[in-house]
């Protein structure tokens, strides 16, 4: 279980997160939705222990963040691809696997390569990969150690529709064993999440399942929720 209690964060005089309290439900996909600059990435970095929060408390399985050992249970994918371009796809997977201190069996590596359909290109240097291939490889690396939590910052940016469908299917399959926390600013993807957190002006403006949110605001798509929120202000 991930708990965020009264989290605030400021960079100098600028408030980036304002009094955020959230519980992230296990074995579900929780989507963090909001326009660019609303503080999504900062929230994720606080969750990972990469950024310090000024006030409040974050716990994962009752362990206070930041905690290095906790990272064993988390798979993280940043917005950028974060791959070694001068290594092959397979070498990238193996390197990060070793960072979790696990001897990953050949079978497991192979299964993951098959899952993201990179088996044929595993011996190619990543610098020769297409954008979509890099994204898939990044995704594969996040669940190499079968983490309990997956924290993905905009996982489907720059991916073609077919592959996007494919990835969402995989995410839903991962739900069985993991809790997923995903940021996005693409509204139609929001509908695929089980739970939604709408972020606006450094705080959580609305939360619930997509259907609940649509009903509360009496609108037919998520875009209109944001327009309504804008109007309220």
């Amino acid at each position: 279980m991930i708990h965020l209690k009264n989290i605030s964060k400021r960079f100098g005089k600028q408030t980036v997160l304002h009094d955020i309290s959230v519980e992230i439900a296990p074995n579900q996909i929780t989507g963090l939705l909001g326009p660019s600059g609303s503080g999504k990435t900062t929230l994720i970095k606080c969750l990972m222990g990469m950024e310090k929060y000024d006030a409040g408390l974050i716990t994962i399985n009752d362990v206070t963040v930041p905690n290095r050992k906790l990272l064993n249970k988390i798979g993280y994918m940043a917005q950028s691809d974060s791959l070694y371009h001068d290594l092959t796809g397979k070498e990238n997977i193996e390197l990060f696997a070793h960072m979790y201190g696990k001897r990953i069996s050949k079978k497991h590596t192979q299964a993951i390569l098959d899952l993201v359909q990179l088996d044929q290109d595993k011996h190619k240097l990543v610098e020769h990969y297409s954008g979509g291939m890099k994204r898939r490889l990044s995704l594969a690396i996040t669940f190499i150690h079968q983490p309990e939590f997956l924290i993905l910052d905009e996982p489907t940016v720059g991916i073609d529709p077919v592959l996007k469908m494919n990835i969402w299917e995989q995410l839903h399959a991962l739900k069985e064993s993991s809790t997923l926390f995903i940021t996005t600013h693409i509204m139609d993807e929001a509908m695929k999440c089980d739970q939604l957190l709408l972020m606006k002006n450094q705080r959580i403006a609305a939360s619930g399942s997509p259907q609940e949110i649509l009903e509360t605001y009496g609108v037919s798509d998520i875009d209109q929720v944001f327009l309504k929120l804008e109007g309220e202000k």
Binding site: M50, L71, N72, A78, D81, Y84, M99
Partner: peptide, 14 residues
């Protein structure tokens, strides 16, 4: 700049 340092530090490496 490539983000690999951040990625490495998202693993439990000291």
């Amino acid at each position: 700049s490539s983000g690999t340092l951040e990625k490495l530090l998202s693993t439990p490496i000291r």
